[in-house]
């Protein structure tokens, strides 16, 4: 089943003009300098794959992009303006999937997604949410509290939240963790549809991804690992 990617029409008169860039980003965690002088530029219709070994600062980089953390130096810009200055517009256009899913154990998947949308100022009725959850393979557990779901299923609930939000920019930290083969294939399809419709994705993964036909940009953080040229990250690096 195909489900159209909804983009926020009133916000993006032309999604193809959107741009996310990082300028001279420096990130320090405690005593460790993770990276400095990092440059990045991402246009609409592109996917940025962030690569680097464990503890090199991939997650820190994504948190800087999301605006949750402040960089030691440098800045992140959305359409040429610092995200601190256009925070509201930026956060309207952006969703961030972290390691933790942000799924409440005591609520059902439908309630979780509904609240997620509500926090973004969107009203969504269950009839709008259920098809997305069904697409994410959660048809059997729409009314169960998330407590009884497996880790991978909770990940799917969080991904359904992204879809329902209709945001332009997806920042995904290891979206494939805990997903089974079919789940991975589903996410690949989602990514392809989203990027081809003019969306933007920034993501990290340690799993191989098939992204034929997707305009993919690579960003290396830390020293280059032994990569054989394909998009896949080395298997021994899997967290």
């Amino acid at each position: 089943m195909r489900f159209p990617v909804i983009l926020h029409e009133h916000l993006f008169s032309n999604p193809w003009l959107m741009q996310l860039s990082a300028h001279d980003l420096t990130c320090q965690r405690g005593d460790r300098l993770l990276f400095s002088g990092l440059q990045m530029d991402l246009q609409a219709g592109q996917l940025l794959l962030v690569q680097g070994g464990n503890g090199r600062g991939k997650t820190s980089f994504l948190r800087l992009l999301s605006g949750l953390s402040q960089p030691e130096a440098g800045e992140v810009r959305w359409n040429g303006e610092s995200i601190d200055r256009v925070r509201e517009t930026y956060q309207q256009s952006m969703v961030y999937l972290a390691h933790a899913n942000g799924v409440k154990d005591d609520l059902t998947p439908v309630e979780n997604v509904q609240i997620y949308a509500g926090l973004r100022g969107q009203k969504r009725v269950p009839a709008e949410i259920e098809p997305v959850l069904v697409r994410m393979g959660l048809a059997a557990c729409l009314d169960l509290p998330a407590r009884v779901l497996s880790f991978g299923q909770r990940r799917r609930v969080a991904l359904a939240g992204l879809l329902v939000s209709g945001a332009l920019l997806w920042i995904l930290d290891e979206p494939l963790t805990g997903l089974d083969v079919r789940g991975v294939a589903e996410v690949e399809t989602l990514l392809r549809e989203h990027v081809q419709a003019g969306g933007m994705v920034v993501m990290t993964t340690h799993q191989p991804l098939r992204l034929q036909g997707v305009d993919t940009v690579m960003l290396q953080i830390g020293p280059v690992m032994q990569v054989d040229g394909s998009v896949s990250a080395p298997a021994n690096e899997a967290a």
């Binding site: 509201e88 390691h99 409440k104 997620y116 926090l119």
Partner: peptide
């Protein structure tokens, strides 16, 4: 904070 939903709430467009 523990289950990550605090981050999601902070990332909402509202202050």
């Amino acid at each position: 904070h523990r289950d990550g939903s605090l981050e999601q709430m902070l990332l909402s467009p509202q202050p």
